[in-house]
Design a protein around this nucleic acid. Structure first.
Lengths: 189, 189
DNA sequence: GCCAGATTTCAAGTTTTTCTGAAATCGGCG
DNA sequence: CGCCGATTTCAGAAAAACTTGAAATCTGGC
């Protein structure tokens, strides 16, 4: 195969990944473009400047800037510098487990923590403690407590997995995924 | 406290929960109304008909109908009947762990499985196997494989937790959340 | 301190998602 | 059957989310 055809093929495969990751992005509650920028940086493994991103993804400068900022906040992309270059360059975290941990951490922060906070407030608002508190209030409180328990556990799990030596996640996941039977699926990795 | 004030207070607390759950719903990628309908059924624990839902949440009949259908598909709400009544009534799953499993199952289905499928397609498209396949193609394939591995593991985990004796989740979560050290954090629950 | 290139901000425009309401369909009962 | 209340559907309206582009701001080198 001639070199040109090979590299065209490569770009095409990259684009397909970018597209797939971008579509998942919108399912995951982040903007599609943000996911695409991440996908491009990840899949090529190269450091790129804003203009390269804009060209390849056909997005505006403003959009690129905002997406990059968000990715930096998520911790899955970092700024780098090239010797004599004035512009900023960006690279994606290449370790997939580290990337996954960063995503998990951010999602727990957005999708679980606010709920736990609200649950606390609602329970406070609902005066189930009074000696003659009505049955209904006690029932409500109990329901809320159960929800709090489950989501609190999810948050702790997330913390354990994403914290310090998150390496643990990899091990735990592998163990849990195959070890003690339960479903029909045969071990996969 | 007079009965009226008590029940007003209860309704207020319920509304706050409904609001909180609804807001999370939109973060979780489902429509806010759908989450609110679920929240109302869950938090009251009562069987309700469509008109009650519409009144309490101030939504249209069409919206109520569509939200209920989606909740039935998710498996967190079910249809019930009242003796001589002609209309349908709906109740929410009351076991919080069962509810959580249903949510998890559906989210893995939407947020992980399509990605795995795409990854397979992209790897096929990228001909990294050829004897003189360029370095770049092999690199791409390796990246894709790693992503596949991680998300594949997540999917198996999800399956184990939501499948058959999903009761396991509760236990596993509790164990993992506190048991074997690794991070600096002292056990929390 | 000032210039030039680079980045950020944000009001206005665009696209996507969600909601409404009324017409069509359903389904049990006499 | 044919009726009637209940539910579903879906085209259009409304709301929410995302993107653009140009002006404002920043930054490093001289």
């Amino acid at each position: 195969m001639p070199d040109d055809a090979q590299s065209a093929q490569l770009l095409k495969a990259q684009d397909r990944f970018i597209d797939a990751w971008g579509r998942m992005g919108s399912v995951w509650g982040i903007s599609r473009t943000m996911a695409e920028v991440h996908a491009l940086l990840f899949v090529t493994g190269e450091a790129m400047c804003m203009d390269e991103l804009m060209d390849r993804l056909r997005i505006s400068r403003g959009n690129a800037s905002m997406s990059l900022r968000a990715l930096l906040e998520w911790g899955v992309v970092s700024k780098t510098h090239k010797d004599g270059e004035r512009r900023d360059f960006y690279t994606a975290e290449q370790d997939v487990w580290a990337m996954f941990r960063a995503i998990l951490r951010e999602r727990v922060k957005r999708e679980v923590e606010p709920l736990l906070e609200s649950l606390g407030e609602v329970r406070e608002l609902n005066p189930s403690g009074g000696k003659n508190a009505p049955e209904s209030a006690r029932e409500l409180d109990q329901r809320l407590e159960e929800v709090q328990e489950v989501f609190g556990l999810v948050a702790s799990l997330g913390e354990r997995f994403t914290g310090a030596n998150g390496q643990g996640l990899k091990v735990a996941a592998k163990l849990l995924a195959k070890a003690p039977g339960g479903t029909r699926r045969k071990a996969k990795a």
